[in-house]
């Protein structure tokens, strides 16, 4: 089997998900035996305009981003969204809670704002078709490898539409709500093996929401544990603002 050429791209992001890939250690050798990396700004100087697989980190936040991602989509046969910014908009989505003008003034100042065009934050799939989603902030390395294998074989991969609670229970963590903390595990998509909770942190919802909306149930839970609604909304908006109004299929 001829190795597929793979290129990494970054849009609006911290490049931390690519760093996760660069930091794989020994497993990276197996990955590099399976793919031919032709562009990866964080780890190599070579560049290429031709590639089979485009791995995209970051969200789309400027008109220039839109043009650039469309070009990449036309070149690549397979597009993988890497990390929350690319897969759901992520942290950058917080911008969508404010007026664009206010955001521009805040970031660039009254004088500078006119030099930088901006648009509401979008996840990659809100602009072009995405074939594979690797959620998470940052990505969960074993899931990246798993999805890469599916992509290289051309098999469809569906992120399981179940809550982080499922994996958390199997790991036998004490429930954060029992500890008096607020956790987004019950409404966040699993696949990270409840990574944060295993290490004593709460779930921040970085992987996006499960498809089934359970608004009434969620309100009941919030009441049961006596949690102020704006706490939950604040946590929700941290990662999920850009995709909150998406039709959930």
């Amino acid at each position: 089997m001829k190795r597929k050429t793979v290129a990494f791209f970054d849009f609006t992001c911290c490049e931390g998900c690519q760093l996760q890939v660069a930091n794989f250690g020994e497993e990276l050798l197996d990955i590099l035996a399976a793919i031919d990396v032709v562009m990866f700004r964080e780890v190599m100087s070579e560049k290429s305009d031709e590639y089979d697989v485009a791995i995209i980190e970051g969200s789309i936040t400027t008109p220039h981003d839109v043009e650039r991602i469309k070009e990449i989509r036309e070149t690549a046969t397979t597009v993988i969204a890497l990390g929350s910014c690319a897969s759901i908009g992520g942290i950058n989505g917080m911008k969508n809670s404010f007026k664009l003008e206010d955001v521009q003034s805040y970031v660039y100042g009254e004088d500078g704002k006119n030099y930088f065009e901006t648009i509401p934050t979008m996840a990659v799939h809100q602009v072009v078709d995405v074939d594979y989603f690797v959620h998470g902030c940052p990505i969960y390395p074993p899931e990246f490898v798993k999805i890469l294998k599916y992509a290289l074989q051309g098999l469809p991969y569906t992120v399981k539409d179940e809550a982080v609670c499922v994996e958390c229970k199997l790991n036998e963590n004490e429930c954060m709500y029992e500890k008096g903390l607020t956790c987004l595990g019950p409404i966040t998509k699993a696949g990270c093996n409840s990574w944060c909770i295993n290490y004593g942190n709460i779930c921040y919802g970085c992987r996006g929401m499960v498809k089934e909306t359970t608004k009434n149930a969620s309100i009941d839970v919030i009441k049961k544990y006596d949690i102020p609604m704006d706490w939950i909304m604040g946590k929700f908006d941290m990662y999920n603002k850009a995709t909150e109004s998406e039709e959930k299929k």
């Binding site: 197996d30 990955i31 809550a163 595990g185």
Partner: peptide, 24 residues
């Protein structure tokens, strides 16, 4: 909430899925 906690902690729930995990 459809979180699956009730079945995962049940001593008599035994449903399973089988996943194929291929090496690189």
């Amino acid at each position: 909430l459809s979180c699956g906690n009730c079945t995962n902690v049940c001593p008599t729930c035994y449903c399973y899925d089988v996943e194929d995990e291929i090496d690189l």
